[in-house]
Amino acid sequence: MAKIIGSPSRYVQGKGEMKNLCGHAANFGKKLFVLTSVSGRKRVEPAIAEGQGDAQIVYEVFNGECCKTEINRVMEACKGAGCDVIVGIGGGKIHDTAKAAAHYLGLPVVIVPTIASTDAPCSALSVIYTDDGVFEEYLFLPASPNMVLVDTDVVSKAPERLLIAGMGDALATYFEARACQRSDAANCVGGKITMAAMALARLCYDTLLTDGINAMLAVKENICTKAVENIIEANTYLSGIGFESGGLAGAHAIHNGLTAIEETHELYHGEKVAFGTLVQLVLEHAPEDELDEVIDFCLETGLPVTLEDLGIKEVKPEQIMEVAQLAAAENDTLGNMPFEVTPEDVYAAIMGADALGRYYKGI
């Protein structure tokens, strides 16, 4: 099997870049179908209008879930409007819906994050949920987005919890890629892992440790420092390329299992992935210094390290076993670990991670 690395055709990041969206998108189409939320439109429309020029724009409100029902609705709305390029502006579920709809319609897609809470923007992947928000499947796409545009002025003004959630998602990148490399598993683009992908995954982790706390503190003050710029790039590009071309393993499978517990629906994707990373490290029997580093980072940023942090106030063994069984399902990514993993192993690792988290928190 060949080594393959995937990435967007172009990645643009900088302060004030939202006003240049139409100019960049002109390379792909003249009539933009912009999928965003009501609040998202209010945040970005004035800047987009400033540089609109001759471009036509049709705005469509996202209904809140990346599910087959919403993807089909967006496709029909886009066709009805006669648009020739789809632009997803907002968070991960908007991005994944825009990517899926563009794929089925055979149209180019431009992704514009207004938050840095996930690594979804750069990937050739849509995570599909049921209408009720339970993980259903991964939709692997034939190509990454045509362009990803990040206005760091916009992203840095989002609530700090979103940037922290993005760091939680990015935290898994190196460890999952490392597991896939050890097992010689295929990555998300259907090939083996390149040296470049592993280097980006490691750089992602190192950037979190170097700049994560400074970026969090800056965003709390609504300012965009060099640390914030670096973390936005880590959360969006380094993690996006790193997870997709490096591969997924335990952390995201644990996240997917956790979606079966209703209480966790209040948390962001990256917050659950952070706990999934800790579970994966317990599964791997990771060295103590590595566990120390990861748990300390989570505690300093406020990422979850216990089941209670995930909103699970009463731990029910049968419920945790359901999470473990879903995580270990044949169609998920725990099979990419470099050893056999059973639902019983996952159950023990979840409970072990929770115990570790409580120990470090002194509870």
Results as ranks from 00 to 15, higher is better:
A2S: 14
I5T: 11
Q13W: 08
E17C: 12
L21V: 06
C22S: 08
F28I: 05
F28W: 12
F28C: 07
K31P: 04
L32G: 08
T36P: 00
S37V: 08
V38F: 15
P46N: 13
P46Q: 12
A47T: 14
I48N: 02
G51H: 00
D54H: 11
A55D: 04
V58T: 14
V61I: 15
N63F: 00
C67S: 08
M75K: 14
C78R: 07
K79V: 12
K79C: 08
A81P: 12
C83L: 05
I86Y: 04
G91W: 02
K93P: 07
A100T: 00
A102V: 03
Y104L: 08
G106L: 11
L107V: 07
T118F: 11
T118V: 13
T118E: 11
A124N: 09
A124T: 09
L125K: 05
S126K: 01
S126P: 01
V127I: 06
I128Q: 13
Y129V: 02
T130L: 07
D132F: 13
E136G: 03
Y138H: 07
L139K: 05
P145I: 00
L149Y: 11
V154W: 07
V155H: 00
A158K: 03
A158Y: 04
I164Q: 02
A170N: 03
E176G: 03
A177R: 04
A179C: 10
Q181M: 15
D184S: 12
A186L: 14
N187V: 05
C188W: 00
I193H: 02
T194R: 00
T194W: 01
M195W: 10
A196Y: 05
R202P: 09
T207P: 08
T210N: 15
A218Q: 09
K220E: 11
E221A: 13
N222W: 02
T225V: 02
T225G: 00
A234S: 15
Y237N: 05
G240I: 03
G240R: 03
G247T: 08
H255M: 11
I261G: 12
E263S: 12
H265L: 13
G270Q: 02
E271W: 06
K272S: 03
G276N: 06
L278G: 04
Q280N: 04
V282S: 12
H285K: 15
A286V: 05
V294F: 09
I295H: 04
F297H: 10
C298W: 10
G302I: 09
G302Y: 07
L303D: 10
P304M: 05
V305D: 09
T306S: 10
L307N: 07
G311Q: 13
K313F: 13
K316C: 14
V323R: 02
Q325F: 09
L326P: 00
A329T: 00
A329Q: 01
T333L: 03
G335V: 14
N336P: 14
N336S: 15
F339S: 09
V346F: 12
A348K: 14
A349M: 04
I350P: 01
I350W: 03
M351Y: 09
A353F: 01
A355K: 05
Y359E: 12
Y360R: 15
K361T: 12
I363P: 02
